[in-house]
């Protein structure tokens, strides 16, 4: 089928799949962001077990392939009597992995903060959590806008894992498999999805660059 035939026949499905991919990406990125911040706070905390846990987390989830993690969730969890929908399994896999990278970027951001500023905060009588909230995390975030933007795009691409399981609703990658099992969409079906992924990534990149210019810290 040609692209126009595909669009005529599956136009609505593509739109729905695009929205599903966006929704999945937004949920996963938000979760990854929150987990990433928590893990990062643990990594700089004075409590050793927390630091060890957080380091382990990062090492594991930075290095595990998304597909393996998804398979693990889908096939192993039922043995523990945990039954989750495919959507939830995909969400978890596509959150836990980016969270590890999020923490890496935030740590890199933290390393740009002059240690003297932390001492200044402590000298003012700020507690550990105040120092983290008011001095460390805000600066780490501002200096990692571009890596986090890339992470958002990477998270979107990770959600394509959904095509490995019969997730309902279909995302962009899942729709390609769906079309190819029910009709002869071939490369064209893939190209449409690819174009939509790319277009989204370009928009994300533009927004990220703008935000970075706005919040970047003068040094």
């Amino acid at each position: 089928m040609s692209i126009s035939q595909l669009l005529a026949q599956y136009g609505e499905e593509y739109l729905a799949a695009l929205l599903t991919t966006w929704k999945l990406t937004a949920i996963c990125f938000l979760a990854a962001f929150v987990i990433g911040i928590l893990i990062t706070v643990m990594r700089v905390s004075p409590i050793r077990p927390l630091r060890i846990f957080a380091e382990l987390y990062v090492q594991i989830f930075r290095n595990i392939p998304g597909a393996s993690l998804l398979i693990l969730l889908v096939y192993a969890l039922p043995y523990l009597n945990i039954l989750l929908s495919y959507f939830i399994c995909v969400t978890i896999a596509a959150s836990l992995i980016p969270a590890a990278f999020c923490s890496e970027y935030l740590m890199a951001g933290i390393n740009t903060i002059a240690p003297g500023q932390i001492e200044a905060a402590r000298s003012l009588g700020m507690t550990f959590s105040q120092t983290i909230r008011r001095v460390v995390i805000p600066q780490a975030l501002r200096s990692s806008v571009l890596p986090l933007t890339n992470l958002l795009t990477a998270t979107m691409l990770t959600t394509a894992l959904a095509s490995q399981v019969p997730m309902n609703p279909l995302d962009l990658a899942g729709l390609v498999s769906h079309i190819n099992t029910h009709a002869v969409g071939g490369v064209m079906a893939f190209l449409i999805s690819a174009a939509l992924y790319c277009a989204t990534a370009v928009v994300i990149g533009q927004i990220g660059t703008r935000i970075d210019q706005k919040v970047r810290i003068l040094r």
């Binding site: 002059a114 003297g116 500023q117 001492e119 402590r122 000298s123 009588g125 600066q139």
Partner: peptide
């Protein structure tokens, strides 16, 4: 802990490298 933080709030400190919060 908190008592140390409270004590520090009574002692001002000025550093060679200023250490103002950059953001």
């Amino acid at each position: 802990g908190k008592e140390l933080a409270a004590l520090r709030s009574h002692i001002g400190m000025v550093f060679q490298s200023f250490n103002l919060f950059a953001h």
